[in-house]
Design a protein around this nucleic acid. Structure first.
Lengths: 213, 213
DNA sequence: GCGTGTGAACCTCTTCACAGCG
DNA sequence: CGCTGTGAAGAGGTTCACACGC
Protein backbone atom coordinates (compact mmCIF):
# COMPACT_ATOMS: atom_id res chain seq x y z
CA UNK A 1 0.00 0.00 0.00
CA UNK A 2 1.44 3.35 -1.03
CA UNK A 3 0.63 6.41 1.06
CA UNK A 4 -0.81 8.52 -1.75
CA UNK A 5 -1.60 12.18 -1.09
CA UNK A 6 -5.32 12.61 -1.38
CA UNK A 7 -8.02 15.07 -0.46
CA UNK A 8 -10.22 14.77 2.57
CA UNK A 9 -13.26 14.89 0.35
CA UNK A 10 -12.12 11.75 -1.39
CA UNK A 11 -11.50 9.99 1.95
CA UNK A 12 -14.99 10.95 3.04
CA UNK A 13 -16.40 9.39 -0.11
CA UNK A 14 -14.36 6.23 0.41
CA UNK A 15 -15.99 5.98 3.82
CA UNK A 16 -19.40 6.21 2.14
CA UNK A 17 -18.48 3.57 -0.43
CA UNK A 18 -17.41 1.27 2.41
CA UNK A 19 -20.76 1.77 4.09
CA UNK A 20 -22.63 1.02 0.84
CA UNK A 21 -20.54 -2.07 0.24
CA UNK A 22 -21.22 -3.43 3.73
CA UNK A 23 -24.94 -3.10 3.08
CA UNK A 24 -24.54 -4.77 -0.32
CA UNK A 25 -22.63 -7.60 1.32
CA UNK A 26 -25.50 -8.13 3.76
CA UNK A 27 -27.98 -8.12 0.88
CA UNK A 28 -25.81 -10.82 -0.72
CA UNK A 29 -24.74 -8.82 -3.77
CA UNK A 30 -21.44 -9.96 -5.23
CA UNK A 31 -20.76 -7.26 -7.84
CA UNK A 32 -21.39 -3.53 -7.95
CA UNK A 33 -20.72 -1.08 -10.76
CA UNK A 34 -19.45 2.45 -10.28
CA UNK A 35 -22.90 3.58 -11.38
CA UNK A 36 -24.67 1.63 -8.63
CA UNK A 37 -22.22 2.86 -6.02
CA UNK A 38 -22.67 6.40 -7.33
CA UNK A 39 -26.46 6.30 -7.19
CA UNK A 40 -26.31 4.97 -3.63
CA UNK A 41 -24.03 7.77 -2.53
CA UNK A 42 -25.67 10.53 -4.54
CA UNK A 43 -22.70 11.38 -6.76
CA UNK A 44 -21.51 10.71 -10.32
CA UNK A 45 -20.05 7.42 -11.51
CA UNK A 46 -17.00 9.26 -12.84
CA UNK A 47 -16.25 10.51 -9.35
CA UNK A 48 -16.44 6.97 -7.98
CA UNK A 49 -14.08 5.59 -10.61
CA UNK A 50 -11.70 8.51 -10.13
CA UNK A 51 -11.59 8.02 -6.34
CA UNK A 52 -10.91 4.32 -6.66
CA UNK A 53 -8.38 4.59 -9.48
CA UNK A 54 -6.15 6.82 -7.33
CA UNK A 55 -5.20 3.76 -5.29
CA UNK A 56 -5.20 0.99 -7.83
CA UNK A 57 -7.27 -0.92 -10.33
CA UNK A 58 -9.88 -2.69 -8.31
CA UNK A 59 -12.52 -3.26 -10.98
CA UNK A 60 -13.06 -5.51 -13.97
CA UNK A 61 -13.97 -3.87 -17.25
CA UNK A 62 -17.34 -4.91 -18.50
CA UNK A 63 -18.59 -6.15 -15.14
CA UNK A 64 -17.72 -3.89 -12.20
CA UNK A 65 -16.21 -4.29 -8.74
CA UNK A 66 -16.29 -7.41 -6.55
CA UNK A 67 -18.06 -6.24 -3.41
CA UNK A 68 -15.93 -8.08 -0.86
CA UNK A 69 -12.61 -7.33 -2.55
CA UNK A 70 -13.38 -3.66 -3.00
CA UNK A 71 -14.51 -3.35 0.61
CA UNK A 72 -11.29 -4.99 1.81
CA UNK A 73 -9.24 -2.64 -0.37
CA UNK A 74 -11.05 0.46 0.83
CA UNK A 75 -10.66 -0.59 4.47
CA UNK A 76 -6.96 -1.10 3.77
CA UNK A 77 -6.75 2.40 2.29
CA UNK A 78 -8.63 3.98 5.18
CA UNK A 79 -6.61 1.96 7.66
CA UNK A 80 -9.76 0.61 9.27
CA UNK A 81 -9.06 -3.07 8.66
CA UNK A 82 -8.09 -3.08 12.33
CA UNK A 83 -9.91 -0.07 13.77
CA UNK A 84 -8.21 2.05 16.45
CA UNK A 85 -9.47 2.12 20.03
CA UNK A 86 -12.13 4.71 20.82
CA UNK A 87 -12.60 6.47 24.13
CA UNK A 88 -15.14 9.07 25.18
CA UNK A 89 -14.15 11.96 27.42
CA UNK A 90 -17.16 13.46 29.13
CA UNK A 91 -20.01 11.34 30.50
CA UNK A 92 -22.69 13.93 29.95
CA UNK A 93 -25.82 13.28 27.93
CA UNK A 94 -24.05 13.22 24.55
CA UNK A 95 -21.14 11.09 25.72
CA UNK A 96 -23.42 8.49 27.29
CA UNK A 97 -25.75 8.54 24.31
CA UNK A 98 -22.88 7.72 21.96
CA UNK A 99 -21.77 4.94 24.28
CA UNK A 100 -25.27 3.50 24.44
CA UNK A 101 -26.06 3.74 20.76
CA UNK A 102 -22.75 2.18 19.73
CA UNK A 103 -21.39 1.93 16.22
CA UNK A 104 -22.86 -1.23 14.73
CA UNK A 105 -22.45 -1.52 10.96
CA UNK A 106 -19.53 0.89 10.75
CA UNK A 107 -16.83 -1.66 10.16
CA UNK A 108 -15.66 -2.69 13.58
CA UNK A 109 -15.38 0.46 15.66
CA UNK A 110 -16.36 0.04 19.31
CA UNK A 111 -16.26 2.43 22.23
CA UNK A 112 -13.73 1.04 24.67
CA UNK A 113 -14.16 3.32 27.69
CA UNK A 114 -15.79 6.49 28.92
CA UNK A 115 -14.17 8.95 31.33
CA UNK A 116 -15.32 11.92 33.42
CA UNK A 117 -13.87 14.12 36.14
CA UNK A 118 -17.09 14.47 38.13
CA UNK A 119 -16.92 12.17 41.21
CA UNK A 120 -20.70 11.86 41.11
CA UNK A 121 -20.53 10.26 37.67
CA UNK A 122 -17.61 7.91 38.23
CA UNK A 123 -18.56 4.25 38.41
CA UNK A 124 -22.06 5.04 37.17
CA UNK A 125 -23.18 2.73 34.37
CA UNK A 126 -23.21 4.02 30.81
CA UNK A 127 -24.22 1.42 28.28
CA UNK A 128 -22.42 -1.73 29.40
CA UNK A 129 -19.44 0.15 30.85
CA UNK A 130 -18.76 2.09 34.03
CA UNK A 131 -17.59 5.70 33.90
CA UNK A 132 -13.90 5.90 34.81
CA UNK A 133 -12.06 8.89 36.33
CA UNK A 134 -10.14 11.05 33.86
CA UNK A 135 -7.04 10.57 35.99
CA UNK A 136 -6.81 7.06 34.55
CA UNK A 137 -6.58 8.23 30.94
CA UNK A 138 -2.79 8.65 30.87
CA UNK A 139 -2.22 5.09 32.05
CA UNK A 140 -4.90 3.83 29.69
CA UNK A 141 -3.23 5.47 26.69
CA UNK A 142 0.10 3.86 27.59
CA UNK A 143 -1.46 0.44 27.05
CA UNK A 144 -2.79 1.28 23.57
CA UNK A 145 -0.88 2.21 20.45
CA UNK A 146 -3.55 4.25 18.72
CA UNK A 147 -6.54 5.89 20.29
CA UNK A 148 -9.16 8.25 18.96
CA UNK A 149 -10.61 10.35 21.77
CA UNK A 150 -14.10 11.76 21.44
CA UNK A 151 -14.52 14.90 23.50
CA UNK A 152 -18.07 15.52 24.70
CA UNK A 153 -17.41 17.75 27.70
CA UNK A 154 -19.39 20.99 28.06
CA UNK A 155 -18.94 24.49 29.35
CA UNK A 156 -15.56 25.47 27.93
CA UNK A 157 -13.68 22.46 29.34
CA UNK A 158 -12.86 21.04 25.91
CA UNK A 159 -9.50 22.78 25.48
CA UNK A 160 -8.29 21.50 28.86
CA UNK A 161 -9.49 17.99 27.98
CA UNK A 162 -7.63 18.15 24.68
CA UNK A 163 -4.40 19.24 26.34
CA UNK A 164 -4.62 16.43 28.85
CA UNK A 165 -5.18 13.94 26.01
CA UNK A 166 -2.34 15.34 23.92
CA UNK A 167 0.03 15.19 26.91
CA UNK A 168 -0.93 11.56 27.32
CA UNK A 169 0.05 10.90 23.70
CA UNK A 170 -3.30 10.98 21.90
CA UNK A 171 -2.95 11.80 18.19
CA UNK A 172 -6.57 12.02 17.01
CA UNK A 173 -9.54 13.83 18.49
CA UNK A 174 -13.17 14.23 17.53
CA UNK A 175 -14.78 17.12 19.37
CA UNK A 176 -18.47 17.76 19.94
CA UNK A 177 -17.65 21.03 21.72
CA UNK A 178 -18.49 24.37 20.12
CA UNK A 179 -15.18 26.11 20.70
CA UNK A 180 -12.45 25.88 18.08
CA UNK A 181 -9.61 23.98 19.76
CA UNK A 182 -5.88 24.58 19.56
CA UNK A 183 -3.74 21.49 19.14
CA UNK A 184 -0.16 20.71 18.08
CA UNK A 185 0.56 20.23 14.40
CA UNK A 186 0.86 16.44 14.65
CA UNK A 187 -2.51 15.98 16.37
CA UNK A 188 -5.52 15.64 14.11
CA UNK A 189 -8.68 17.35 15.36
CA UNK A 190 -12.10 17.12 13.79
CA UNK A 191 -15.45 18.50 14.84
CA UNK A 192 -19.08 17.48 14.91
CA UNK A 193 -20.90 20.78 14.78
CA UNK A 194 -24.66 20.42 14.90
CA UNK A 195 -25.13 24.18 15.03
CA UNK A 196 -23.13 24.71 11.83
CA UNK A 197 -25.19 22.05 10.06
CA UNK A 198 -28.30 23.87 11.23
CA UNK A 199 -26.91 27.16 9.90
CA UNK A 200 -26.28 25.55 6.51
CA UNK A 201 -29.81 24.14 6.43
CA UNK A 202 -31.32 27.45 7.51
CA UNK A 203 -29.37 29.32 4.87
CA UNK A 204 -30.54 26.86 2.28
CA UNK A 205 -34.26 27.06 3.03
CA UNK A 206 -34.22 30.83 3.53
CA UNK A 207 -32.30 31.29 0.30
CA UNK A 208 -34.81 29.18 -1.62
CA UNK A 209 -37.62 31.37 -0.33
CA UNK A 210 -35.83 34.46 -1.54
CA UNK A 211 -35.23 32.93 -4.98
CA UNK A 212 -38.70 31.45 -5.38
CA UNK A 213 -40.61 34.64 -4.90
CA UNK B 1 -30.11 41.42 0.83
CA UNK B 2 -29.35 39.78 -2.49
CA UNK B 3 -29.46 35.99 -2.75
CA UNK B 4 -25.92 35.46 -4.02
CA UNK B 5 -24.88 32.03 -5.20
CA UNK B 6 -22.17 30.80 -2.88
CA UNK B 7 -20.38 27.61 -1.91
CA UNK B 8 -21.30 25.50 1.08
CA UNK B 9 -17.76 25.80 2.38
CA UNK B 10 -18.16 29.54 2.57
CA UNK B 11 -21.48 29.22 4.43
CA UNK B 12 -19.81 26.86 6.90
CA UNK B 13 -17.11 29.44 7.52
CA UNK B 14 -19.70 32.19 7.99
CA UNK B 15 -21.21 29.99 10.69
CA UNK B 16 -17.80 29.80 12.36
CA UNK B 17 -17.28 33.54 12.11
CA UNK B 18 -20.67 34.05 13.76
CA UNK B 19 -19.65 31.77 16.62
CA UNK B 20 -16.36 33.65 17.08
CA UNK B 21 -18.12 36.98 17.02
CA UNK B 22 -20.63 35.88 19.67
CA UNK B 23 -17.73 34.94 21.94
CA UNK B 24 -16.00 38.25 21.20
CA UNK B 25 -19.23 40.08 22.03
CA UNK B 26 -19.34 38.32 25.40
CA UNK B 27 -15.71 39.24 26.06
CA UNK B 28 -16.69 42.84 25.34
CA UNK B 29 -14.59 43.29 22.20
CA UNK B 30 -15.94 45.94 19.84
CA UNK B 31 -13.69 45.50 16.80
CA UNK B 32 -12.12 42.46 15.15
CA UNK B 33 -9.76 42.34 12.17
CA UNK B 34 -9.86 39.69 9.48
CA UNK B 35 -6.58 38.42 10.94
CA UNK B 36 -8.04 37.90 14.42
CA UNK B 37 -11.10 36.19 13.00
CA UNK B 38 -8.85 34.02 10.84
CA UNK B 39 -6.60 32.94 13.70
CA UNK B 40 -9.66 32.03 15.76
CA UNK B 41 -11.06 29.87 12.98
CA UNK B 42 -7.76 28.40 11.84
CA UNK B 43 -7.75 29.83 8.31
CA UNK B 44 -6.13 32.71 6.39
CA UNK B 45 -7.14 36.34 6.67
CA UNK B 46 -7.54 36.52 2.89
CA UNK B 47 -10.18 33.80 3.07
CA UNK B 48 -12.09 35.73 5.71
CA UNK B 49 -12.05 38.95 3.71
CA UNK B 50 -13.04 37.10 0.55
CA UNK B 51 -15.99 35.38 2.27
CA UNK B 52 -17.26 38.64 3.69
CA UNK B 53 -16.71 40.72 0.57
CA UNK B 54 -18.99 38.42 -1.43
CA UNK B 55 -21.97 39.91 0.39
CA UNK B 56 -20.96 43.49 0.90
CA UNK B 57 -18.43 45.81 2.46
CA UNK B 58 -18.78 45.30 6.18
CA UNK B 59 -15.35 46.50 7.32
CA UNK B 60 -13.52 49.76 7.76
CA UNK B 61 -10.10 50.06 6.17
CA UNK B 62 -7.40 50.64 8.72
CA UNK B 63 -9.43 49.38 11.68
CA UNK B 64 -11.40 46.20 11.00
CA UNK B 65 -14.98 44.99 11.49
CA UNK B 66 -17.43 46.14 14.16
CA UNK B 67 -18.25 42.98 16.06
CA UNK B 68 -21.97 43.58 16.57
CA UNK B 69 -22.60 44.90 13.05
CA UNK B 70 -20.72 42.06 11.40
CA UNK B 71 -22.54 39.47 13.49
CA UNK B 72 -25.90 40.99 12.56
CA UNK B 73 -24.91 40.99 8.89
CA UNK B 74 -23.74 37.37 8.96
CA UNK B 75 -26.92 36.27 10.72
CA UNK B 76 -28.86 38.10 8.04
CA UNK B 77 -26.92 36.28 5.33
CA UNK B 78 -27.37 32.88 6.99
CA UNK B 79 -31.03 33.64 7.62
CA UNK B 80 -30.63 32.89 11.31
CA UNK B 81 -31.69 36.30 12.61
CA UNK B 82 -34.95 34.54 13.39
CA UNK B 83 -33.97 30.86 13.60
CA UNK B 84 -36.36 28.21 12.27
CA UNK B 85 -38.15 25.79 14.59
CA UNK B 86 -36.29 22.57 15.42
CA UNK B 87 -37.90 19.23 16.12
CA UNK B 88 -36.31 15.88 16.93
CA UNK B 89 -37.71 12.66 15.51
CA UNK B 90 -36.64 9.65 17.55
CA UNK B 91 -36.48 9.73 21.36
CA UNK B 92 -33.63 7.25 21.63
CA UNK B 93 -30.41 8.00 23.45
CA UNK B 94 -29.08 10.43 20.84
CA UNK B 95 -32.37 12.28 20.38
CA UNK B 96 -32.84 12.76 24.11
CA UNK B 97 -29.19 13.72 24.60
CA UNK B 98 -29.54 16.49 22.00
CA UNK B 99 -32.73 17.67 23.69
CA UNK B 100 -31.06 17.71 27.10
CA UNK B 101 -27.82 19.35 26.06
CA UNK B 102 -29.61 22.10 24.13
CA UNK B 103 -28.00 24.65 21.83
CA UNK B 104 -26.90 27.51 24.06
CA UNK B 105 -24.51 29.96 22.43
CA UNK B 106 -25.48 29.05 18.89
CA UNK B 107 -27.48 32.13 18.10
CA UNK B 108 -30.99 31.36 19.19
CA UNK B 109 -31.78 27.83 18.06
CA UNK B 110 -33.92 25.82 20.47
CA UNK B 111 -35.41 22.36 20.25
CA UNK B 112 -39.16 22.80 20.18
CA UNK B 113 -40.41 19.22 20.43
CA UNK B 114 -39.35 15.59 20.34
CA UNK B 115 -41.40 12.80 18.76
CA UNK B 116 -41.34 9.00 18.79
CA UNK B 117 -43.58 6.19 17.59
CA UNK B 118 -42.91 3.87 20.54
CA UNK B 119 -45.92 3.99 22.92
CA UNK B 120 -43.60 3.20 25.83
CA UNK B 121 -41.66 6.42 25.21
CA UNK B 122 -44.58 8.76 24.62
CA UNK B 123 -45.16 11.25 27.43
CA UNK B 124 -41.85 10.32 29.02
CA UNK B 125 -39.77 13.36 29.99
CA UNK B 126 -36.82 14.34 27.87
CA UNK B 127 -35.09 17.48 29.06
CA UNK B 128 -37.96 19.82 29.92
CA UNK B 129 -40.32 18.40 27.29
CA UNK B 130 -42.50 15.32 27.00
CA UNK B 131 -42.08 12.91 24.08
CA UNK B 132 -44.98 13.30 21.67
CA UNK B 133 -46.36 10.67 19.28
CA UNK B 134 -45.14 10.93 15.68
CA UNK B 135 -48.74 10.99 14.57
CA UNK B 136 -48.89 14.60 15.78
CA UNK B 137 -46.07 15.76 13.49
CA UNK B 138 -48.25 16.56 10.48
CA UNK B 139 -50.50 18.84 12.54
CA UNK B 140 -47.49 20.37 14.23
CA UNK B 141 -45.88 21.25 10.89
CA UNK B 142 -49.07 22.95 9.73
CA UNK B 143 -48.71 25.49 12.53
CA UNK B 144 -45.12 26.39 11.64
CA UNK B 145 -43.78 27.98 8.49
CA UNK B 146 -40.25 26.57 8.60
CA UNK B 147 -39.07 23.55 10.50
CA UNK B 148 -35.77 21.71 10.53
CA UNK B 149 -36.30 18.09 11.56
CA UNK B 150 -33.47 16.18 13.18
CA UNK B 151 -33.80 12.45 12.57
CA UNK B 152 -32.27 10.28 15.29
CA UNK B 153 -34.19 7.06 14.75
CA UNK B 154 -32.31 3.78 14.54
CA UNK B 155 -32.48 0.49 12.74
CA UNK B 156 -33.31 1.49 9.19
CA UNK B 157 -36.36 3.56 10.08
CA UNK B 158 -34.81 6.82 8.92
CA UNK B 159 -36.08 6.66 5.33
CA UNK B 160 -39.65 6.12 6.52
CA UNK B 161 -39.29 8.99 8.99
CA UNK B 162 -38.01 11.24 6.23
CA UNK B 163 -40.91 10.40 3.94
CA UNK B 164 -43.40 11.11 6.68
CA UNK B 165 -41.74 14.47 7.33
CA UNK B 166 -41.60 15.36 3.65
CA UNK B 167 -45.26 14.50 3.20
CA UNK B 168 -46.01 16.83 6.10
CA UNK B 169 -44.19 19.64 4.28
CA UNK B 170 -40.78 19.62 5.97
CA UNK B 171 -38.08 21.14 3.74
CA UNK B 172 -34.89 20.61 5.78
CA UNK B 173 -33.59 17.53 7.53
CA UNK B 174 -30.50 16.71 9.56
CA UNK B 175 -30.00 12.97 9.85
CA UNK B 176 -27.92 11.11 12.41
CA UNK B 177 -28.77 7.80 10.70
CA UNK B 178 -26.10 5.87 8.82
CA UNK B 179 -28.10 5.13 5.67
CA UNK B 180 -27.99 7.56 2.76
CA UNK B 181 -31.54 8.91 2.44
CA UNK B 182 -33.54 9.63 -0.67
CA UNK B 183 -35.47 12.87 -0.70
CA UNK B 184 -37.16 15.10 -3.29
CA UNK B 185 -35.07 17.74 -5.03
CA UNK B 186 -36.53 20.60 -3.03
CA UNK B 187 -35.82 19.05 0.37
CA UNK B 188 -32.39 19.72 1.84
CA UNK B 189 -30.84 16.79 3.68
CA UNK B 190 -27.61 16.87 5.66
CA UNK B 191 -25.90 14.23 7.75
CA UNK B 192 -23.98 13.95 10.98
CA UNK B 193 -21.78 10.94 10.40
CA UNK B 194 -19.64 10.07 13.37
CA UNK B 195 -18.36 6.94 11.67
CA UNK B 196 -17.13 8.89 8.64
CA UNK B 197 -15.32 11.35 10.92
CA UNK B 198 -13.70 8.37 12.61
CA UNK B 199 -12.66 6.96 9.23
CA UNK B 200 -11.05 10.27 8.31
CA UNK B 201 -9.19 10.38 11.62
CA UNK B 202 -8.10 6.77 11.31
CA UNK B 203 -6.84 7.34 7.78
CA UNK B 204 -4.94 10.37 8.97
CA UNK B 205 -3.11 8.69 11.86
CA UNK B 206 -2.42 5.50 9.93
CA UNK B 207 -1.12 7.51 6.99
CA UNK B 208 1.22 9.51 9.22
CA UNK B 209 2.69 6.27 10.51
CA UNK B 210 3.35 5.08 6.99
CA UNK B 211 4.98 8.37 6.02
CA UNK B 212 7.02 8.77 9.22
CA UNK B 213 8.81 5.47 9.06
C1' DG C 1 -21.65 -4.51 -25.65
C1' DC C 2 -20.57 -3.07 -21.12
C1' DG C 3 -18.05 -0.74 -17.62
C1' DT C 4 -13.43 0.59 -16.05
C1' DG C 5 -9.48 3.73 -15.97
C1' DT C 6 -7.74 8.17 -17.44
C1' DG C 7 -6.00 12.23 -20.33
C1' DA C 8 -7.84 16.65 -21.09
C1' DA C 9 -11.02 20.38 -20.49
C1' DC C 10 -13.48 22.65 -17.31
C1' DC C 11 -14.75 24.82 -13.25
C1' DT C 12 -14.48 26.26 -8.50
C1' DC C 13 -12.05 27.73 -4.60
C1' DT C 14 -7.80 29.56 -2.50
C1' DT C 15 -3.88 32.42 -2.15
C1' DC C 16 -1.16 36.28 -3.42
C1' DA C 17 -0.24 40.94 -3.54
C1' DC C 18 -1.47 45.50 -3.84
C1' DA C 19 -4.39 49.66 -4.68
C1' DG C 20 -7.09 52.53 -2.00
C1' DC C 21 -9.51 54.22 1.93
C1' DG C 22 -9.86 55.58 6.84
C1' DC D 1 0.32 53.55 8.67
C1' DG D 2 -3.02 49.59 9.02
C1' DC D 3 -6.43 46.82 7.20
C1' DT D 4 -9.99 46.10 3.82
C1' DG D 5 -11.58 44.67 -0.74
C1' DT D 6 -10.29 42.58 -5.04
C1' DG D 7 -8.04 41.61 -9.72
C1' DA D 8 -5.02 38.12 -11.18
C1' DA D 9 -2.55 33.86 -10.67
C1' DG D 10 -2.47 29.39 -8.92
C1' DA D 11 -4.05 25.01 -7.08
C1' DG D 12 -7.29 21.50 -6.62
C1' DG D 13 -11.31 18.96 -7.69
C1' DT D 14 -14.88 17.53 -10.99
C1' DT D 15 -16.80 16.22 -15.35
C1' DC D 16 -16.38 14.73 -20.01
C1' DA D 17 -15.58 11.41 -23.30
C1' DC D 18 -13.22 7.72 -25.09
C1' DA D 19 -9.62 3.98 -25.52
C1' DC D 20 -9.08 -0.39 -23.79
C1' DG D 21 -9.98 -4.86 -21.62
C1' DC D 22 -13.40 -8.33 -20.31
Amino acid sequence: MIAVKVSEKSIRRLSHYARCLRLALIRGELIMTSQQLATNCGISSAAVRRDLSIYGEFGKQGSGYKVDDLLANIEEILGTTVPPTLIIVGAGSIGCALMISGLAGTGGYTYDSIFDNDPKKINKACGDKLVRPVTEIADFLKTKKEVIAIITVTGGAAQAALEMLVDAGCKAILSFALEPLKAPENVEVRYVEVSTELDVLTHSIRRKERVDQ
